[in-house]
């Protein structure tokens, strides 16, 4: 079976944050939470690079290992999902995740936390496919519709690749081979000579 993965091509990412907005709007993500974020280094200086990061849907995910109620689980295609009916919002997954992915909406009582929210690879959640509950708790289920996640679908430079790990690895390899690096990157001969 295909193993779903994300890959962000940092030679293409232009820090437009379209992926963040698309995800947030399209999935009805709670206030104060971004399932995806863009990190930029050397902003405005030579060597500026950006990367878009969300849940990496790890193999042997640490969040699954520490979850005290087994609310987090992994599908056969590698997508890691959380069951919001079972999650107790303890925050162990946040402490175990190397990417700082799990987020918790602030409740109204003394800043108490709600249940964990994270990227679903646009695969909804444990609720029945396309149900009202699934849309409300987890957002869209584009995987069940046969589409790629919103962030990758709207990426204007196609820096963000999502899908079968083997296929996106091949696309990335072809890109690297074609453009080389540095001054051999696409557009350089037109723009700078």
């Amino acid at each position: 079976m295909a193993r779903m993965k994300f890959l962000c091509d940092i030679e293409r990412c232009i820090d437009c944050k379209g992926c963040v907005i698309a995800c947030k709007e399209g999935n009805g993500v709670p206030v104060g939470i971004n399932r995806r974020r863009v990190i930029t280094i050397n902003q405005g200086k030579p060597g500026e690079k950006s990367i878009s990061i969300a849940c990496m849907h790890c193999s042997d995910a640490p969040c699954i290992a520490v979850c005290p109620v087994n609310a987090i689980y992994q599908r056969d295609d590698g997508i890691v999902l959380v069951n919001k009916d079972v999650c107790i919002g303890c925050g162990y997954c946040f402490m175990a995740c190397p990417f700082g992915v799990p987020q918790f909406p602030k409740g109204d009582t003394f800043g108490k936390r709600g249940v964990m929210d994270k990227c679903t690879f646009c695969a909804g959640g444990p609720a029945p496919n396309f149900s009202e509950k699934e849309r409300r708790l987890y957002g869209q289920n584009r995987i069940a519709e046969g589409k790629v996640p919103l962030c990758a679908a709207m990426c204007s430079t196609k820096a963000l690749l999502a899908g079968d790990g083997d296929k996106i690895a091949r696309i990335f390899q072809e890109r690297v081979a074609r453009r080389g690096s540095g001054a051999a990157a696409p557009g350089w001969s037109t723009a700078y000579k």
């Binding site: 280094i41 050397n42 030579p46 060597g47 690079k49 990061i53 690096s181 540095g182 001054a183």
Partner: peptide
Amino acid sequence: MLLRKFGSISTVQAFKEFGVISPQW
């Protein structure tokens, strides 16, 4: 020299600088 600088950061170096993974993890 200015032009070369734009391509001067390698992908590997950039990934380190992003600090996506906490170094203590």
